[in-house]
């Protein structure tokens, strides 16, 4: 590039100065992702550090009482994570069958026309903001469940884990179904042909060959779905409630990690009180938890892809 025997225009020489600048700008832009992660880790971790210098890590991780506002506050994480997991399990119980069966339908049974209807349908559901689903859970589903419970003589809390879990389940249906759809489509056609040639029906082929072959991919879809459910905020803030009950009763009111993060930061924030800082400790825990789940899921998917490469 430094040959000068050619008659170089001014513009060409200018390029020598601008191109490195443009290059560093682009490099800098890509660093933003790293910076964001660093920002999350450093800021959330430093506030958490301050929290843990006031509240011992052990009493946080293993404490069974969450009462940040009481005169002698206690910051036990256990009721929050139990509530979170309870809702997640309910959500998964709804989303796993619906998601996988929809994916099977889309990948195996649907005619191109039916697919052209079903796929946008799932995308539409995926595009609905969670605050809308939260509103629906709190003002329509929860009263409905309560009324149903009253019919059969059950008392159900007006903010029950069940209502939040059911709606959250519908929220993660598109996630599970689109990921499963992808992995089912990645199962080689030769595998299906082998089964059909044996005289298997389509459902036998799906249940005994296709789904087992797609199993690792489906598992990673589940893991990502769990991660989504754990980190979801609005549905639980609006429908699950604030009561830190240590309970695995789906009809009771429970609270979750994200609900409490929100609750700790509403109103006056005092960045020297353990109460406000606890939001960051919860955030850090949530971040680590979902990060682990995502890494596992991505690894499973990668192995699966290599398997059928």
């Amino acid at each position: 590039m430094t040959t000068t025997s050619l008659n170089l225009t001014k513009k060409y020489r200018l390029r020598h100065y601008t191109e490195p600048v443009v290059f560093s700008l682009m490099l800098g832009a890509s660093f933003f992702a790293v910076l964001t992660t660093l920002g999350i880790v450093l800021s959330v971790a430093s506030e958490s550090y301050r929290f843990f210098s006031a509240v011992p890590l052990q009493s946080f991780l293993f404490g069974t009482e969450w009462a940040p506002s009481s005169p002698i506050p206690s910051f036990g994480f256990v009721p929050l994570i139990v509530g979170t997991l309870l809702i997640t399990i309910i959500a998964l119980a709804v989303a796993a069958p619906i998601g996988i069966l929809s994916a099977v339908y889309m990948a195996e049974y649907a005619t191109p026309r039916a697919r052209a209807f079903a796929k946008p349908l799932l995308e539409l559901l995926a595009g609905i903001p969670t605050v809308v689903l939260g509103f629906f859970a709190a003002l329509t589903v929860a009263p409905f469940i309560r009324a149903m419970g009253a019919q059969v003589g059950l008392t159900i809390a007006s903010e029950s884990a069940l209502a939040a879990g059911l709606v959250m389940g519908m929220m993660i249906v598109p996630l599970i179904s689109s990921l499963s759809d992808d992995v089912i489509n990645a199962v080689p056609q030769a595998m299906r042909d082998g089964s059909y040639a044996m005289g298997a029906t389509q459902s036998e082929t799906i249940r005994k060959v296709v789904l087992p072959a797609a199993f690792p991919g489906i598992v990673s879809a589940f893991i990502l779905a769990i991660s989504r459910a754990i980190g979801e905020t609005m549905i639980v803030v609006m429908a699950a409630g604030l009561a830190p009950n240590l309970s695995i009763n789906p009809l009771a009111a429970v609270t979750t990690v994200t609900v409490q993060i929100n609750a700790m930061l509403v109103g006056d924030q005092e960045f020297d009180s353990a109460k406000t800082l606890s939001a960051f400790a919860l955030g850090l825990t949530l971040f680590v938890l979902t990060l682990i789940l995502n890494v596992i899921a991505l690894r499973v998917v990668r192995q699966y892809k290599e398997h059928y490469a």
């Binding site: 992702a33 990502l224 990060l291």
Partner: peptide, 23 residues
């Protein structure tokens, strides 16, 4: 950078709020 981007895409949105508040 790539690993970072892929993982960031799956971080719960509330965490970004905490980041915004703190930073």
């Amino acid at each position: 950078i790539e690993v970072n981007i892929n993982n960031l895409a799956a971080v719960p949105s509330i965490i970004f709020g905490l980041l915004g508040l703190a930073v």
